[in-house]
Amino acid sequence: MLLTGTLEHAHFKAWEREARVCITHASKGTLVFVVGPSGAGKSTLRSHLEGTSYRSDADSSKNQIPLVSVLATNSESGYFSSKDFYSRMLGQLGDPFRREGTLTGSPQAKQMTPEQLDFLGEPFWDSIRVSMTETKIRRAFECLAQAVHLQAIFVDEAQSMCLTHVNRSPSDHLESLKILAERLGIIIFLFGTYDLLDIWNHSAQLNRRSHLIHLQRYDTDLDADRAAFYSVLRMYSKAIGFEEPATLSKHAETVLAWTFGVFGEVEKLFERARFTALAQGRDGLRWQDIEEAKYTPIQTERLKHEIETGEARVKGELPKVPKTATTKRGNRYPGRRNPVRDPCGPQS
């Protein structure tokens, strides 16, 4: 970070209010989609909500935090693994029966029903090295979540759930989370880029149980957004240290055009420029450093396409394009011919 503090987006308060309305008034079992371009402030909003809405008192034990915040990763050969996902959520709840080998006398045991105690008390859980199925891990998470009165789950980088194997639809993971939210009576926030829209709005039932919060960039066509953008640039100008203090004021419109009003892109632009200056033995930045740090034309076109396409899909202007399953090539039995029809007729 080039700044010691956090820059607040002009619309951040509105996003925060909308999220808090979902927290306090949305029915249990709701999925809240928080989408926007990379660098729009999704992680900042998530961290703010974690610290102000769900964290319990400092005296509470680790196993009584009513919030699970987890990062969705593509840990399985580049694909999203729901087994790994539930394993990491289970670990955040403390997972006492696997660490201690028994539930007897633990604080969680006092909150559980006899059926839950029987399930979690099986010898299966006595060793961490035992290979566990996804179903077992999910069931254990549900039992512990009910015992600690879990209120919400935050999933960051949720667009990773779209990276699935050919034989599994990305919407399967979303349906699994929807059922989990309904069963536990909690709210699940999904923070992700516009790629998350691949699994959003895939069924009428999900639409009825979900809410969308769109974290928009600074709109270059709105005077108020342009003024707010230039105001934040002035804060950068004071904090970064240019050799010529009026550099950003002179080139504010150019920076806005290069970054499309996304301040995460502005931060990275200045960071790359800083690397250039330091490599040349200078502490102060020059406009030439920023020019060298800007994206190439093909990178700029990619960023523009992702932002404009994502915004259009949020507005319902572009339909969701179904992904065609790729067929596996190659011979299942080496040495044998693949089954194909021999040519026949006069031309054979």
Rank of each mutant, 00 (worst) to 15 (best):
A140W: 01
L7F: 07
P339S: 01
F275K: 10
R302T: 13
L163V: 06
K13P: 00
Q146N: 10
G91A: 12
R99S: 09
K250C: 01
Q347T: 13
F260M: 12
D219R: 13
A145F: 08
E134K: 14
K83Q: 09
D289G: 06
R168T: 15
Y333Q: 11
R209M: 01
H165M: 09
R234L: 07
L233M: 09
K320L: 14
R183Y: 06
G91N: 10
K304M: 08
I137P: 02
E271G: 02
L150W: 02
H202A: 07
P297K: 06
S127D: 12
E76C: 02
Q159E: 10
D289H: 11
F33W: 14
V130L: 09
L120K: 04
L285H: 06
D225H: 15
L278S: 05
E100L: 14
W15Y: 09
F229H: 02
K294T: 07
R282L: 01
C143P: 00
T52A: 07
K323G: 03
K13H: 12
F260W: 07
A109D: 03
A224W: 07
F154S: 05
H11D: 10
P96R: 08
F191H: 05
H11F: 08
Y333W: 13
L93H: 03
K268T: 13
D198P: 00
E253L: 07
L248E: 02
Q280A: 10
K323Q: 11
E134I: 04
L49N: 03
L285M: 03
T276H: 15
Q205A: 13
K238P: 00
Y236P: 01
T133G: 12
I298S: 14
R336H: 12
R272Q: 08
F270N: 06
T24F: 11
Q64H: 09
I199H: 05
I186T: 07
A239R: 11
T164E: 06
V321K: 15
K83H: 11
F260P: 00
E271C: 03
L71M: 12
S348Y: 07
D172K: 13
E291V: 13
W287M: 09
L212P: 03
L215A: 02
F191W: 03
P107M: 05
G284D: 11
K178D: 05
S87M: 12
Y194F: 15
A273I: 02
K315E: 12
R139S: 04
A40N: 04
P170K: 12
L269E: 04
K238W: 04
L67Y: 04
T44A: 11
H202R: 15
S131M: 08
R217P: 01
K323Y: 09
N207Y: 06
A140R: 03
F12H: 12
T300Q: 15
K268N: 09
D219K: 10
T247E: 07
F242A: 02
A26P: 01
A140D: 00
V262T: 12
L256K: 06
A72Q: 08
L190W: 04
L269R: 10
K28D: 10
A152E: 01
A152I: 04
Q216V: 08
R183W: 00
R139Q: 10
M112P: 04
W258N: 03
P123C: 01
S56D: 08
L222N: 11
P339C: 01
A224L: 08
K42H: 05
F191I: 05
I188D: 03
E265C: 03
I137C: 00
L71R: 15
H251S: 02
T324G: 05
C344N: 10
E115D: 10
Y54R: 01
I307E: 02
Q111I: 00
W258D: 04
T44V: 14
